[in-house]
Design a protein around this nucleic acid. Structure first.
Lengths: 126, 126
DNA sequence: TGCGCTCATCGTAGAATTGCGATAGGATTC
DNA sequence: GAATCCTATCGCAATTCTACGATGAGCGCA
């Protein structure tokens, strides 16, 4: 239960419903491919995280891995810093944690908590 | 019916890891569209969950909503039961909980716990 | 300077996704 | 049976995704 009442969205603005859905969908989409989940797990399991290591670890071409890394970078889940001739990739643990929070904010509905009555209802019952 | 993709790639890893990555990616992909996040939230916020309500709630055509529901059904996140002339949709809370667990199993790495040393390392350090 | 290494990007092809209208199927009601 | 309502599916077009090889850009080193 690490869900505070108010949680800023990825860009810092308050989390309205549209923002919630957009952010959750964006991060979920970034993780919506087994290769990208594998990359994230691989990065989390190591401290050294050079692109070459990932390419060796996956049965994919270097260009394909680079493209998956670009998707992860665009989503904010992964950051890449230039280190000489190489690029050191790391998971942005804050963004990953925020993703967990977004999923958790879906979860309270598992208990049918009254919290689940979002403003969506207003649009249905004006 | 379409043939199941059954990705041949990402082999050479223990079945646990491959299953983890496949399941997490599949569920994340299902939630990787704002409309589907919206549908899931809407279903969780109401006890009555007929398809028509969802169509009215979303700015999308009925056929498009039905297609999104099919994606959610295929992922297991949503179940649909025929109720007379209508179909009552509900979120499978167990599957949603499992999704949260899968994300949480990614999270311990936030603390750099030794748990994060998965068998991935063995392939890199023989 | 020139070479080699590392990674990003381009171009391309095939597959998948997204959205819609039109239509078919199934159940209820008259 | 006929009419009606609700939902799934089909067909289509536009877009995006995925994967690859080839090429280019940037850095370090001889």
């Amino acid at each position: 239960m690490r869900t505070p009442p108010k949680q800023p969205s990825l860009d810092g603005t308050p989390l309205d419903d549209a923002g919630f859905e957009r952010d959750l969908a964006r991060l979920a989409k970034a993780l919506g491919h087994p290769a990208r989940v594998r990359i994230v797990r691989f990065l989390l399991s190591r401290d050294t995280c050079m692109c070459g290591d990932i390419v060796e670890h996956l049965p994919l071409a270097q260009s394909t891995v680079s493209q998956h890394l670009k998707v992860l970078k665009d989503s904010g889940l992964v950051q890449g810093t230039i280190a000489g001739p190489r690029v050191c990739y790391c998971v942005d643990r804050e963004v990953l944690g925020r993703f967990g929070d977004l999923v958790d904010r879906l979860q309270p509905c598992l208990e049918r908590a009254p919290d689940c009555r979002t403003p969506l209802d207003q649009e249905e019952e004006p």
